[in-house]
């Protein structure tokens, strides 16, 4: 039987949305025993300008359909992305929202749980809002079983430029320790 899980990361261009999918996908695909993962990202005209998204599909068997259509987890970093994609979140799906950038409406009621974090403001305490994506992933890691912190750190250190690693670790910890 399939244990398929779909995760959508969404926000606006410049927030490092594709990197979120890439890091989480790689962490699961290469380090979670018995799991496979596929990452896809919005591409072409749909990725120019406003909204940006990336998907990670996770399964315990071969993945037969690589795209996310009904998200189990919706990690949302902007209002535009919320409006655009909330409709495709599953009933009882789990939401993570950048609380300063997303205004929730009635559609969010179908979520079984909504985790809120001011990721951008927290990142700014480290000197740059660019760390908001990793801060959010620390929060996701602490509140789900999707991936393990030590695996994520391995992947992140390999993929991120050396001079950003230290602040990214701090950002991850800010997210991890945040109480929503």
């Amino acid at each position: 039987m399939s244990d398929r899980i779909e995760v959508r990361f969404a926000g606006f261009g410049g927030q490092g949305i594709a990197l979120m999918g890439r890091l989480v996908g790689e962490t699961i695909a290469l380090h979670e025993k018995g799991k496979t993962a596929i990452m896809t990202q919005s591409y072409g005209p749909e990725s120019r300008g406003g909204a940006s998204s990336s998907d990670v599909v996770i399964d315990t068997t071969e993945i037969d359909f690589p795209k996310a259509t009904h998200y189990d987890y919706f990690v949302c970093m902007s209002e535009e992305a919320y409006t655009k994609y909330i409709g495709r979140m599953k009933e009882r799906g789990v939401m993570f929202v950048e609380e300063d950038l997303v205004i929730l409406d009635a559609h969010a009621k179908k979520a079984s749980k909504i985790f809120k974090i001011p990721a951008t403001a927290l990142a700014e305490t480290l000197g740059s809002k660019l760390y908001a994506n990793i801060c959010m992933l620390g929060y996701v890691c602490a509140n789900t079983d999707l991936f393990k912190e030590k695996d994520f750190m391995k992947v992140m250190k390999d993929k991120v430029r050396a001079r950003f690693i230290e602040n990214n670790i701090k950002a991850f910890n800010l997210g991890k320790n945040h109480k929503g």
Binding site: A29, T36, A37, I38
Partner: peptide, 10 residues
Amino acid sequence: DETIGHMSER
């Protein structure tokens, strides 16, 4: 194809 070309996998 575009999907295989752009998706990431192990």
